[in-house]
Design a protein around this nucleic acid. Structure first.
Lengths: 188, 188, 188, 188
DNA sequence: GATGAATGAGGCTTCATTCAT
DNA sequence: CATGAATGAAGCCTCATTCAT
């Protein structure tokens, strides 16, 4: 029941927004009453927090595996990171969009936690880039902070338009982007 | 007065969100009464629509100049586009974020107009990329649609973190991104 | 201009009701601004009062002529009264309906005036009936109060449905009603 | 609770009018909060509709019994109809006045339903009159439509002034009116 | 005479939340 | 576990009215 409520909320929060979705909407979606909602959640905000924690937790655990895979070099790890993000669109897109869009609606305490984890994720990606620089994969004079943010921009933005069921698969899109990031679009 | 109301709303919508900002908040921000608000706007939605139309109108007019500047080649036009976007952060960041985040809250009719114009902007950028391919600037086998979306991802994402007053200027950031997009980060 | 405002209000008050008609509606109807309205009337209520006074004044003056016409007997005077009311539908219907329906919205002081005049009108009709009884035109044991109210019911009710442009003219309707009131519908 | 809300509204709508009565007034009347009102009614209009449907439903069901009573002739049925209406003043006066006065405030769809039922009621009374003509009770050349409207005028108008607790009882008033309608007031 | 700007009060409605059962 | 009833705060919007020009 709790999971059903969470799933319903994720759907509705993504579609209409957190504030625009009422507890009634959520309960109605799975045919229970508001009372039931409050049996499982202390408040609407607590539910939002759960969604956020779950999403960022998932992201960090996935990232953990990528970073600690000693069999892959920096380029591969960058590839794996972008692929992980784009691949997640299939079942995490809604959570991701809620994550980015509804941060504001978290209580300040949770917001801070949230931002820390988000920064951690980004810093970890930056770590991959810096490793690549150190190991001579990437150019020496990169502004790794800006580059990392650019790479994440490419990947994150795809949450707003990419259709995993369309002509281009997630693997293909990852390859297109990695090729651009690594080698650029200039004619050689 | 109308402009003061618009400015106050842009500030508040960006900070707290459209739904989370009450007409009272807006009126209070500039020390007038709600009645005054409704003297200038038929509804809160109409104000949001005005903000959207103004922003996308600005974007398209800037793009127009870039596209029609015959003295610049495709690479330059791409540079100009990215620079225009990043440079606009200084005074259009809030509008831009509202534009992307509060689309949902537009009436369906305006939403459609909005999406059309947004698509037009993207297609125009894609036009620059395709021109570059045709003229031999860029690689022949580019998936121009995906690449364009990637480029816009890099630029748009910066609206969420870039601080024009920080260490890196808008010109520098544009150069960093154009270098990545054109030549990649791989060590040559 | 004042008369144009009055005419527009009568139309709108009848159509939508006093409270449901805004000063804006009235001003808009004749393409002036609210300010203009307040140049001619101290308040919306004052306008309503004017409409009421005008209507009841008209009624009483018409009644005055009927009562004082010494050439007509009680039956004729009753006929003239009913005819006057039904005939007035053509150009006074709206005022009349406002008169009956919007009394509540008058300030208490005007309401009282209003009811007094209304009662006076009714008492005058009752006077005609009583004269008829005294003079032997009408039955002796009539409850003249109730009968008068019944007669007025017949006439007043027609304001809600009678169409002077329809098959039955105001003269004909008056005759039909007078015949019923005087002789009944029973087969003789 | 729902019934208490309805009763309170009927009282207030009659006294002050639908538009002039706020939901706050209704809730306050029975010492609950506005929230409670909206727990039971989707809107103020829905409540008005309920009142209308209830009233006209009552009227039609009463009429049904009268029409189908084969033991009564046309004169009796006319009597029963007028008595039913006047007798209902005691506990339906307010509903009735709301019914006639607040039609405008119904949503168009309900308004239409309403008018149909109202017309049906009138047509049914007209049926009684026509039956009387056919059976030789009433005069042959009656304009049954106009006469019916006149009879209803007499009865309906009494809702605006008749006091069932006064000197004249509802039975007596009915007799007075039936006598006038059937035999007229002329001295024989 | 007429207008446009501004106000403030009040109305309808939604909604997160609580609580007894 | 789950419900139904009730609350109270807050939000959007309308409107009569005032006033300086």
């Amino acid at each position: 029941m709790k999971q059903k409520l969470i799933d319903a909320s994720i759907h509705l929060f993504d579609e209409k927004g957190f504030t625009e979705t009422s507890v009634q909407d959520i309960a109605g979606e799975i045919k229970v009453t508001k009372g039931t909602f409050y049996y499982y959640f202390k408040s609407k905000q607590e539910l939002l927090r759960d969604i956020h924690l779950n999403y960022i937790g998932y992201l960090l655990s996935q990232q953990d595996e990528i970073i600690n895979d000693t069999s892959r070099d920096s380029r591969n790890k960058l590839h794996d990171t972008v692929f992980m993000l784009i691949h997640s669109i299939r079942n995490r897109r809604k959570s991701a969009r809620i994550f980015f869009r509804e941060m504001r609606n978290l209580a300040p305490e949770y917001l801070e936690q949230n931002m820390e984890k988000r920064d951690l994720f980004r810093k970890n990606v930056q770590g991959i880039v810096e490793e690549g620089v150190r190991k001579g994969c990437f150019q020496e004079d990169l502004n790794t902070d800006m580059i990392t943010r650019g790479i994440l921009g490419v990947a994150n933005w795809s949450y707003y338009w990419f259709n995993p069921e369309g002509d281009v698969s997630d693997e293909e899109l990852t390859n297109i982007y990695l090729e651009m990031i690594l080698n650029g679009i200039n004619k050689k």
